[in-house]
Every structure is written in structure tokens, then in C-alpha cells.
Write a protein that binds this DNA or RNA. Structure first.
Lengths: 184, 184, 184, 184
DNA sequence: AATGAATGAGCGTTCATTCAT
DNA sequence: AATGAATGAACGCTCATTCAT
């Protein structure tokens, strides 16, 4: 019965989204499973129908967030015709999702350390996506892949962390200018 | 009775250092006040003689860590004779303390969000120190202060976060090369 | 429609048997209704079609187990021609079913305390069956019915409880010898 | 400071006694740590100051119960001058403590199966005490030690289990008469 | 009749904080 | 000032039970 399946998936999605929202707002440890259940408008027990544990839910959220970053990278690569366009598009996309995704990215980074294996899986996808972009535009980029990887990732992470200290929009310009200087 | 005063300060110091060590090792949520008391070789109740709450202790530790960053900046400024030397020295100093300080820096960042005011106090000191350096070497630095602030801070934070993904030492070189490109 | 009736009874039976098996294996508290449903190959909700609650299911299982004891007694009585033969046969039959029945018997004992009434119903059947045997062989048995009842039941219960502390088979011999001494 | 120690031990004792009482009344799984705390008039957390877990508390209670059985045996041995006196005294003592101890004995028996090691430790003490008595009065006892052990233990356990089915006092007489027949 | 997704009461346990000593 | 025994709110999680399909 496909209807049921959809409903099931809807609930799973609702829980992930609620968790994502709350983790972004308050960090991981400060969000209880009850909080997530309330936000998702499901019973406390329902979370455990879909996820074995809070930790597993966390991984599902992390996976979803990392995927969105990877998507940002891949789509930028698809739509761009040169390195400059690619960087520009990627920055635009990343900043569009910055508010929730960004915070989570680094929240997870810290937390997932304990279960390195999962984290490394997510990270590898992200790294692979960046690698593809690098390979395509290698000739235009005046940097090794390691540098390319560090510079872009560093700026994206920091953008979130320091978002509050800059006027809105200003930080994006700084990142764009910085990457242009670093990578051409 | 000055002796007592000294002793008092010693105990306070011991608690902060114990907390700093454990927070760096295991993150904030995974360290209980009992752990800190044990590490500091004081009674559990003693912590509350010196600090109103775990949160207040956290702030004291954070303050201590931020101060050390500020010290890194100021000393580099004092010892250097031009922008390049300054950046070089600052990177060296920051990386020397990276292992514990770095981890704490970003651990606090998330945690202190709830009490923005404290965080902003720490941050202002750091920003002021960087500002002084910027003013001194302004002419040699091809960037606005905002850029200067974002680039350096971004790289320092990310260095810790991504430390595990690079060979030891490699990340410092990348940072140095990056800052040279960005700031001259 | 008798076919449906049969099917219905089959499902009821399957649930009881599944519960019996699992209770014997793991005790009552360590078996969830989900476990029983899985073992019986029915849906979780189906259990509640046939039984009002886990407690009621428990009683149904208990009833089934007690019946089997009663059956052991009655069959032994039917097949025997004197007290000695009767005791011998009863012990044989009881030990044949000891592994699952025995464990359940005393598992239930504790649990059913809360609903004394049900327990007393089961027990009365068992007592009645023993009474019949006693009446038939009264003259050969050198004990009151109370003693007869206590001695036999005591040994049967304890046999299970202490099974692990004796070599297999040894306990049966001890019971036989004991009963002979006590009852002739 | 011995005063503190005494107080500490008092609280530990209070918790064990509360647990003992409730376990005897309602079995192990039906008693929550909150129930025990309430009964012992301590905070819920206090239990965990003295016992690592509910399981560990359970073992402490079991140990206390088994010890009291062992004490019953040993004291009877000390005070008696022949097998008959010994059996008589032991039965008296065991029945004196029957109400709580007896129920617990078999409640634990069931539960401790999972952590056999602990259980075997307790049981060995009990068995050893009985062995000593057996050795002293061997010549008067017309049974092997295995029989002696099974008969006495069986009757003690069953006495509790079946206590409700007999008039008060009656069961003790049956046990005495039974043991006399079995062991002389 | 049969199902299993959904639920929330209640579990065992932790830990920041208090307070009598 | 210094302590650690004592506490209970709050946690992650389980499971008997309900109910829409």
C-alpha cells in the first residue's frame, strides 16, 4: 500500500527535520528526544520506531546535511563553465543553506568524532565532490587540491561560526574575494 | 593574611586547569563536576565555593583560553618587525597551542552562544589585539581589517577542526601560504 | 462457518504456545508482546484480539501448564494398579515435562499472586486430581492427604529449581526414593 | 569520623531493608528504584551512591538473605547435640524468618540465574553449612548428603511457596515429620 | 478479523547542585 | 573554607496497549 509508505516516510522526514532544526538552534546535547518529538509533533516513542537511538538519528540528520553540501558542490559543477563561475555558484548555494546547514556541519564535526567511521563516510563524499570540481578546473586553479579543499571548507565553516560578527551579506563577499585571491 | 589569599587563588587555578584539561580531552558535556573535582584534587563542593555554577566555571576556562590567544597575538606583534614576520610568528604560536586551545575554542563557541554577552567580551579582546596588529602593518596588508580578521580567524579555527584530515605540519604550511596570498 | 472457528482457535493456540515457549526460555518479564507475536507469526495487535492483556494471556498459558500437570496425575492414576506404581508413573511423567513445565510452574506462581483467584482455580484442579489418587490408594499410603500433597508437590517444584545443582537423572532417583520413604 | 561512617552504614542498611521488603512483597521486576527509595525514605539518587545498579543492590539483598539462612544452619548446628535436635532447631529458625526470607530465596533463585557466578557463591556457602551439619551427624542420618541437601532445601523452599494453602503452623509440622521420616 | 504504526507512562540511571558538618 | 553524602529533575529508552486501516 503505497499510501502508507508515504505516510511512514513523511513521519521519518518530520523527525529528521525537527531534529535538524533543534540541533542547529541549540546543539546536540541540549536537545532531548522529548524536545524532538514535540517539535515533530509525534510521540516520544515514535522516534524509536524510526531510529534505533538518538545517536542513529543524529547520523541520519548529519547524512542529510552533508548530502546537501555535496549537492551544492555537484550542482555548481554541473552549471558552471569555469573555475570562477564554479566558486561563485558554490558560495551562493552554500550561503543559501548556511543558516541551518552550517551550524550543523560543525556541530556534527565535533560530535561525530566519537564514531569516526560514520563521519568519515560523509566527509569522503564531500571531499570526492570537491575533488571532481578540482580535476575539471585544475588548470585554472593556482593551488594544490589539499589547499583548495582546506580553503573552501575553512571559509564555509567559519562563515557560519562568525556569521553574527559581520553584517549580513558582507561575509559572503569576503569569502568570494578570498577564494578568488587564493585560487587563481 | 596574604598566604591564605594565595592558597585560595591556587585552588581556583587548579580547578580551572583541571577543567581545561578535561574539556579539551572529552568535550564539555562529557565532563562532570565530579570529574573536575577529582582531577583538581579538591572536593566536589569546593568547586561551588569558587564558581557559582558549571556554566560560570566554563566561562572562566573560556576566558583563560581566549586570553592565551590574545597573548599569542600580542607577543607576535611585539616580536615582529613587519607583516610577514607577524603572521609567521602568530601562526607558529597558535599552532603551538592548537592541540588544547583549538579544541576548546570551538567547543566554547557553540556552548557560550546561550550567553552571548560573555562570548562577546572575550571576542572583543581578541579582535582588539588583531586590530592593533592590523593598524601597525596596515600598509603592508592588502586587505581590509574585516578581511584580515576573517581570514586569520577562519584558518585558525579550521586548522583545529580539520587537523585529523591532514598530515601533521602540512596544515600549518597551507595556512601560512594562504595567509601570504591573501594578505600581501 | 466452522472453518473460521477452527482457524480462530488455531491462532489462539499458536499465541499460547509461543508465549509458553518464550516464558519458559526467558521468564515472563523478559518476554515482550512483540516477541510473542513474532514467535507466533501473528501481528502485535492480534494478541489483543484474543487476549485482553498480557496478564490474561499469562493466565491462559498458566492454565495450559497446570492442565498438563493434572493430566500427568490423572493418566498415572488410570494406568497404575497400586500406590507405588502410581508414584513411579507420576514422577516419570512429571520429569518428562519438567524442562518447560517446571520452569513455568514456578514462574507463574510468583506472578499470579496478584490475582489469587485465578491461581486458586488452577491449583484446585491439581489438588483434586491428587486427592482422587490419594483416595484410591489411601490404604497403602502412610500419610495424611495434606502430607501427601505437600511432599509430592514440594519435590516436583524443587526438582526444577535445583535441577542445575545435580547430575541429570540423579534428582529423579532422589525424588523417587524420598517419596517411597515418605509415603509407605 | 566514626559518626559519619555509622550514618553511612545506616543508610545503606535502610536501602537494603527496603528493597528486601518490597522484593518479598512484589517480586523483583515489579519494584522500581523509585519504590525502593520511597520505602527507604531516601532520594532516588541516593541508591546509586551506595549501589552501582539495581542489579548490584539485588545481589546485596540476596547476599543478606542467603547469609541469614546460613546463620540459621550454623546456629542450629552449634546449639544441637544430635541430628534430631539439629533438624528441629533448623526448621524452627527457618520458619521464624520464612515470611520475608523464604519468598526472596526463590525469587532470587530465578533471577540470579542470569548472573550464575554470584548465585553460586551464595549457594556454596549454604551448601557448605549444610555439609558441616551432615558430617557431624552423618551416622544418625539415613541418607546421602545429596539427599539430605535436596530434602531439606526442597521443604524449605516449598514451605514458602505453599504457605498460603495450609493453616498456619501446620506446614511446619508436616516438614518436621517429613524430615524425620526421610533422615532417620 | 488482523495488523503494525503510534503512543506515553514509566523505567534505570546520571549529575549539577545543596547543605550539614 | 572545604567537604562529600544526599538529592530530584531530567535524560534516553522500552513496551503494553490502542486504533485507523
Amino acid at each position: 500500500m503505497p499510501g502508507v509508505q508515504v505516510k511512514k516516510e513523511e513521519k521519518r522526514r518530520a523527525i529528521i527535520e525537527a531534529a535538524e532544526k533543534l540541533f542547529a538552534e541549540r546543539g546536540i546535547e541540549d536537545v532531548s528526544t522529548s524536545d524532538i518529538a514535540r517539535e515533530a509533533r509525534v510521540g516520544k516513542g515514535t522516534i524509536y520506531v524510526y531510529f534505533e537511538s538518538k545517536e542513529k538519528l543524529l547520523k541520519a540528520v548529519a547524512s542529510s546535511v552533508y548530502s546537501s553540501f555535496v549537492k551544492d558542490v555537484r550542482e555548481s559543477l554541473k552549471d558552471s563553465r569555469n573555475a570562477e563561475e564554479f566558486l561563485d555558484m558554490m558560495v551562493e548555494r552554500v550561503f543559501r543553506n548556511m543558516k541551518t546547514r552550517g551550524k550543523l556541519l560543525y556541530t556534527f564535526h565535533r560530535h561525530l568524532k566519537s564514531s569516526k567511521k560514520d563521519y568519515e563516510g560523509f566527509q569522503k563524499d564531500y571531499r570526492t565532490a570537491l575533488k571532481e570540481a578540482y580535476e575539471r578546473y585544475k588548470e585554472e586553479i593556482g593551488a594544490t587540491f589539499e589547499e583548495f579543499y582546506f580553503f573552501t571548507t575553512s571559509f564555509f565553516m567559519s562563515s557560519y561560526i562568525m556569521a553574527g560578527e559581520f553584517e549580513p551579506g558582507r561575509i559572503k563577499e569576503i569569502v568570494k574575494a578570498g577564494l578568488k585571491k587564493l585560487l587563481s
